[in-house]
Design a protein around this nucleic acid. Structure first.
Lengths: 317, 317
DNA sequence: CAGGGCCATTAGAAAACCTAATGGCCTGAC
DNA sequence: GTCAGGCCATTAGGTTTTCTAATGGCCCTG
């Protein structure tokens, strides 16, 4: 029986996927020398060379590629084993205190709850809607099990992981004159009258950077951290705003608000789930987040289909 | 990502299949306490109880059974991965010219070839048995791709790396009067009639140094660079010799030759693989050497088990 | 009630792992 | 042709993990 530790196997997987010992080390939070030794140990144990060392890079050998594929399969099986064991370990009970921004409460949350509540009837949910600063404070104070906020550099006492990467859309009313679902190049638009988040919001910083880097002209700017008011205002004026696609999936094809994907280049927002460092996520928290991610992925599919449909219509015209 | 070492997973599998921590320990060549800690670590990481502790036995929980089944699947996939990688690596072609001393051709080479030849059917092997001086010359003359010889200071035109560090054993026949497998302290033996290598052999120098440094008395010394003759002679006389453990692993428990580990202090021989400076080792060469090292490691395990078994027998007596 | 068997826990030695440092090789820029 | 930068291989040593020995607790059987 060949006995290769999982740590070594993960090193081999990382090198295959990154094409470099150095990048694999970064990804595995290890050193290049540690990765080199792990891979060498696997090759020694197997008696097989898994990588061809080229100048400045490595390339898996045919044997290495086969080994990699089987290992990925096995590691996936082990992950699944863990998930199933936890799920089978039965009744999920207890509280779940979640902080979500309006970005998510408007269109993502309802379908997630539709599924989660029947599956976990003995979980007592507490959903708090708020903006990222307030939600972050509540997580730090242990008032929330977790929150989903825009990606930021991190804070002592919190740990985070990327949860959502979402395409930003231009939102406007009929008076702004945009064609629904048509991709827009902001630098080619006439000067915008735009509603943006306040300066404490990380998305605001990203927007400012994007505007400056890509020659987006702004005629007027209005700061508003009030989502309902923002959408109402934009819907009945010639002002525009920029919001993540997940918030406006339900506006597709409804005419009330006009949604346009931003392109050339695309603009994305990233969101992380944050939790206190000293805690681990409960089973119900992880189940909720899994369902949440699935719903976001579904929304992305809806958007992709809608945008693809628009391109087809243009081709027919 | 749940990161559970394979060693722990194997412990869980063994407990499921044996229905007992104690029996699982025996099967895994571990202690009951070690198995207990492995299983506890898995349960802690998963946050799931895998076994119900009954009086006098354990029973997997439903979650434990499910986890076990998935783990068996994953471990099987990894075994398969190793097999396939080795099989695929079989497409290795070309010549391989190897120089080995009788130290290795007697017991290490055959199992290595048993594995290597089917895996590399298209490699044309040339094995040259010889003593270190001759093998070194052949490597320098590019008549060999590499040779394995006792560690030495190096030579211009050659590069070397440590390959084997092996424990030296006292080899004798029944007439010499030693108890099989009992460790011996050479300085406490009656003056030895000993067969040693010739003066050009580095191991000879090491033996001389050891004898002088540790008060080993020698009644008579015979120089012989003829391994078969040495073993035949020692087997049928009261002479002894000192040889690396890898040469005599097949003599354990067979009575024909008596093997005793040398201790207090132990004596080790180191061997290096040498190759011309201007060349790099081919794929098949490295595969052969990897398998060679693995076989030496296996032999060391066999020796460790045999010596440990002798110690247990003494405790019971 | 005592002894035997089995699991859980602790302590400490041994082994494995990991990083820092360095060397060797290759490539590209000058 | 030389030098700097990037990448992998190797070594050494500190740190962490693993493993065993010893022991305690619990349960069952005689």
């Amino acid at each position: 029986m060949t006995n290769i530790p999982l740590r070594q196997i993960r090193a081999v997987i990382a090198v295959c996927e990154e094409g470099s010992f150095t990048r694999a080390a970064e990804r595995e939070n290890a050193t290049q020398s540690g990765i080199s030794q792990h891979v060498a140990a696997v090759e020694r144990t197997l008696g097989v060379q898994l990588f061809e060392r080229l100048a400045g890079s490595v390339k898996p050998t045919p044997a290495g590629l086969r080994y990699y594929k089987r290992c990925v399969e096995a590691v996936g099986t082990l992950e699944h084993a863990a998930e199933e064991a936890r799920s089978l370990a039965g009744k999920v009970v207890g509280e779940l205190r979640i902080g979500l921004m309006p970005t998510f409460t408007r269109a993502v949350l309802a379908p997630v709850l539709d599924d989660f509540v029947p599956r976990c009837p003995e979980v007592r949910l507490h959903i708090v809607e708020g903006y990222s600063g307030a939600l972050t404070d509540m997580v730090l104070d242990d008032e929330l099990d977790f929150a989903v906020v825009p990606a930021f550099e991190g804070t002592i006492g919190l740990k985070s992981r990327l949860l959502v990467r979402d395409r930003e859309m231009l939102i406007s009313g009929p008076r702004a004159g945009f064609t629904p679902l048509a991709t827009v190049r902001l630098s080619e638009c006439k000067p915008l009258k735009i509603v943006v988040p306040g300066p404490d919001n990380i998305r605001r910083r990203n927007l400012d950077t994007y505007f400056q880097s890509h020659g987006v002209e702004v005629e007027a700017m209005l700061e508003m951290d009030a989502m309902i008011a923002t959408l109402e205002f934009v819907g009945r004026s010639d002002w525009v705003t920029v919001l993540p696609s997940v918030i406006s999936v339900n506006d597709i094809g409804r005419g009330e608000l006009i949604v346009n994907p931003i392109a050339e280049p695309e603009l994305h927002a990233e969101f992380v789930v944050i939790q206190p460092t000293r805690r681990t996520l409960s089973t119900q928290a992880r189940m909720f987040l899994a369902r949440f991610e699935a719903e976001v992925a579904h929304i992305h599919e809806v958007w992709d289909a809608a945008i693809a449909g628009t391109k087809k219509s243009k081709l027919r015209a």
